[in-house]
Design a protein around this nucleic acid. Structure first.
Lengths: 125, 125
DNA sequence: TGCATATTCAACCAAATGGTTGACGTTTCG
DNA sequence: CGAAACGTCAACCATTTGGTTGAATATGCA
């Protein structure tokens, strides 16, 4: 009965994308996995190693992250490599900063800001 | 077995805060509520009005948003007013932009950016 | 006082989530 | 070839989630 896409029917399907991204990020195990992948691409087994849970459980988590677009998985030989896809955070970022009220226009400035921050930030030598 | 706070035990309890914020944002009904509250403070009944679900359900959603710190609720008379608390998105923002790797330093620049974007943005006359 | 309004509480329900285990395909390698 | 490593699948389980309804609790107002 309410327009859940808050006034912009053109991007209605995005609501599902936001659901997926936010609920993927809601789990601490999955956030930890993303942090690990920030340092380097990893195989599924290596991702699972530090956790106190089964490989199958980690495999599921990776599936959820992949469905949300937060990572990509490429099988080379018998090992499946997991790679961070930070762009997926984009839609979520856009939504968060202003709850969808500061639309695409500001997004450009945001991109510029992010690029500069990532390139010149004191924590990225 | 893994350090879920990704290397900074000092902010370990924040993991719970992130859980709450992200899972609060994962629901489209709750995101719609936040969008509504962006325009103005509202009473519980008024928040519920456009949705096709019971008042009790909305009351629960508001409780979740409140527990996550995304809104505050103040009872005046017999009506309980709901107010957006955008600061709660702060920790989530910090985490998202660089998965916790570009720390407080960039945050300042981010705040400056946000203030300017909100103040001068073409969608905020 | 008494009634309508505003909101929550309690009990219940179906479905989704996060985990387990064991069996199963692939690929690599001795 | 045969065994080991890599990863997923299927079935199962306990808990959480998102919703319902009906009763209960304040508060405002005639």
């Amino acid at each position: 009965m309410v327009d859940v896409s808050h006034g912009c029917r053109l991007i209605a399907p995005m609501s599902t994308a936001l659901d997926q991204v936010f609920s993927a990020l809601a789990d601490p195990t999955r956030r930890a996995i993303l942090s690990m992948l920030l340092e380097d691409d990893m195989a599924v087994t290596d991702v699972a190693e530090p956790f106190a849970m089964s490989l199958a459980a980690i495999s599921k988590h990776l599936g959820i992250l992949s469905a949300a677009g937060l990572i990509s998985q490429e099988k080379r030989g018998r090992v499946k490599w997991c790679k961070l896809e930070p762009d997926a955070l984009h839609s979520a970022s856009v939504w968060m900063h202003g709850f969808g009220q500061m639309a695409p226009l500001d997004l450009d400035a945001f991109e510029v800001f992010l690029k500069q921050a990532l390139g010149e930030g004191p924590n990225r030598p």
